[in-house]
Each structure stands twice: as structure tokens, then as C-alpha cells.
Amino acid sequence: DIEITTNGEEDAKRVIKELQKRNLEYHIEVHGNQWVIKVR
């Protein structure tokens, strides 16, 4: 598993777009303004 910590929603959406392009499965956890994306 890979864990990507982003700085808020805009940053997270940019990362998610890339993950979707590669058809990767991911899970999002929001901790305040930090979005942690866990990639399987």
C-alpha cells in the first residue's frame, strides 16, 4: 500500500485524477485539511 498525504481538497483531486487514469483502487481519509489517500 502507498500512502499519499495531500494539502487539502484541490491537491487531493489532482492526485485522484492521476490514480483514476491508472485504474488504481484508493481510499481517502480526511484529517482536518489534510487528505490522506491510501492506494492499494
Rank of each mutant, 00 (worst) to 15 (best):
D1I: 14
D1F: 15
D1T: 13
D1M: 14
D1P: 10
D1H: 13
D1Q: 12
D1S: 12
D1K: 07
I2N: 04
I2E: 06
I2Q: 06
I2D: 05
E3I: 15
E3A: 10
E3S: 13
E3D: 07
E3L: 14
E3Q: 12
E3Y: 15
I4V: 05
I4M: 04
I4L: 06
I4D: 00
I4T: 02
I4N: 00
T5D: 03
T5W: 15
T5R: 15
T5K: 11
T5M: 12
T5V: 15
T5I: 15
T6P: 05
T6D: 01
T6L: 14
T6A: 13
N7F: 14
N7A: 10
N7I: 13
N7E: 12
N7W: 15
N7M: 13
G8L: 07
G8R: 11
G8N: 15
G8K: 08
G8M: 06
E9K: 10
E9Q: 08
E9H: 08
E9D: 05
E9G: 06
E9P: 13
E10A: 12
E10V: 09
E10P: 04
E10G: 07
E10I: 08
E10T: 08
E10M: 09
E10K: 11
D11Y: 07
D11N: 11
D11L: 09
D11S: 11
D11M: 13
D11P: 05
D11H: 12
D11Q: 14
A12M: 13
A12H: 03
A12D: 00
K13W: 14
K13Y: 12
K13N: 11
K13E: 07
K13T: 09
R14Y: 08
R14Q: 09
R14F: 08
R14I: 11
V15I: 15
V15E: 02
V15R: 03
V15F: 06
V15N: 01
I16S: 02
I16V: 08
I16P: 00
I16Q: 02
I16D: 00
I16G: 03
I16K: 01
K17T: 09
K17S: 11
K17M: 12
K17G: 09
K17Y: 06
K17P: 01
K17I: 12
K17N: 09
K17A: 14
E18S: 07
E18M: 11
E18L: 09
E18F: 07
E18A: 10
E18G: 06
E18Y: 09
E18P: 00
E18N: 06
E18C: 15
E18Q: 10
E18W: 12
L19H: 00
L19D: 00
Q20M: 11
Q20A: 09
Q20W: 04
Q20H: 08
Q20L: 11
Q20T: 09
Q20D: 10
Q20V: 12
K21F: 07
K21V: 07
K21Q: 11
K21G: 07
K21A: 12
K21W: 06
K21I: 09
R22W: 07
R22K: 10
R22L: 14
R22I: 05
R22Q: 11
R22A: 10
R22F: 07
R22Y: 09
R22N: 09
N23A: 07
N23Q: 10
N23S: 07
N23D: 07
N23G: 15
N23C: 07
N23H: 12
N23I: 02
L24P: 01
L24G: 02
L24H: 03
L24N: 02
L24V: 11
L24Y: 07
L24T: 03
L24M: 09
E25A: 10
E25H: 14
E25F: 08
Y26T: 02
Y26Q: 00
Y26S: 01
Y26D: 01
Y26G: 03
H27A: 12
H27I: 14
H27C: 14
H27E: 14
H27R: 11
H27L: 12
H27S: 15
I28Y: 05
I28P: 00
I28D: 00
I28E: 01
I28L: 08
I28G: 00
I28K: 00
I28A: 03
E29F: 08
E29P: 00
E29G: 02
E29D: 07
E29R: 04
E29N: 04
V30E: 03
V30R: 09
V30A: 04
V30F: 08
V30C: 12
H31V: 13
H31C: 13
H31A: 09
H31K: 13
H31D: 09
G32L: 04
G32V: 02
G32F: 04
G32T: 02
G32N: 10
G32A: 03
N33F: 05
N33T: 06
N33D: 14
N33K: 05
N33Y: 05
N33H: 06
N33L: 05
Q34V: 09
Q34C: 15
Q34E: 09
Q34G: 04
Q34M: 09
Q34K: 12
W35L: 14
W35A: 06
W35V: 15
W35E: 04
W35K: 07
W35Y: 08
W35R: 06
W35H: 10
W35C: 14
V36D: 01
V36Q: 03
V36R: 04
V36P: 03
V36S: 01
I37W: 00
I37G: 01
I37K: 01
I37V: 07
I37D: 03
K38N: 05
K38P: 00
K38H: 14
K38L: 10
K38I: 15
V39Y: 04
V39G: 01
V39N: 00
V39P: 00
V39H: 01
V39K: 00
R40M: 14
R40D: 09
R40I: 15
